[in-house]
């Protein structure tokens, strides 16, 4: 089938197999940040934004994004660097394999929640698994990032 959509701001028209998953499809387009960690929508590694909302690309048919805007970490390099620096300053990126999906969801959370509490952060990101860090360093990074954002606003 033919789809027409925007990938990281660039319009793409393509003939795709009906049953190809968004995850596999965006990887064929060079978006290698999108990773598969499971086949059961449990790990959050494949998180991308469709129309600005986080979705699991392992459970979304590529056909479903026809006419829509899809964003992967490749399209958010500046934001990834900005938040990622806080993660790096904790050493909490570790193996890095879960980082892109996690960061996509953190960036989505930043847009959706204003000044989230610790509990809200944990709930929002509950679907992003990480086997290396034990999550604690990720949360320190988020707190430091939020603090900096607040500082910027008050300046």
């Amino acid at each position: 089938m033919t789809i027409k959509f925007w990938l990281n701001g660039k319009q793409i028209e393509d003939i795709i197999p009906d049953d190809i998953l968004l995850l596999d499809y965006v990887r064929t387009k060079g978006c290698y940040s999108v990773k598969r960690g499971c086949e059961t929508a449990n790990c959050g590694l494949c998180t991308v934004l469709v129309e600005g909302k986080p979705v699991l690309s392992c459970s979304t048919l590529a056909a479903r994004v026809n006419g829509k805007h899809v964003t992967t970490l490749e399209g958010l390099q500046k934001e990834a660097e900005e938040f990622g620096a806080f993660l790096a300053d904790q050493g909490a990126e570790q193996c890095g394999f879960c980082n892109p999906g996690f960061i996509m969801n953190v960036l989505a959370m930043m847009k959706e929640l204003n000044d989230p509490t610790e509990e809200e952060i944990r709930e929002y990101l509950a679907g992003n698994l990480c086997r290396c860090s034990g999550f604690v360093g990720q949360e320190r990074a988020i707190q430091a990032y939020l603090a900096k954002k607040k500082e910027e606003v008050s300046e």
């Binding site: 940040s33 490749e74 938040f83 790096a88 990126e93 890095g96």
Partner: peptide, 22 residues
């Protein structure tokens, strides 16, 4: 000292550095 990992920024920006990416 708590220096950043040398590969940290490549990892957090999702660069294609893993087996299947290569």
């Amino acid at each position: 000292t708590p220096v950043r990992k040398k590969d940290a920024m490549a990892l957090v920006t999702g660069k294609p550095v893993y087996t299947d990416d290569l």
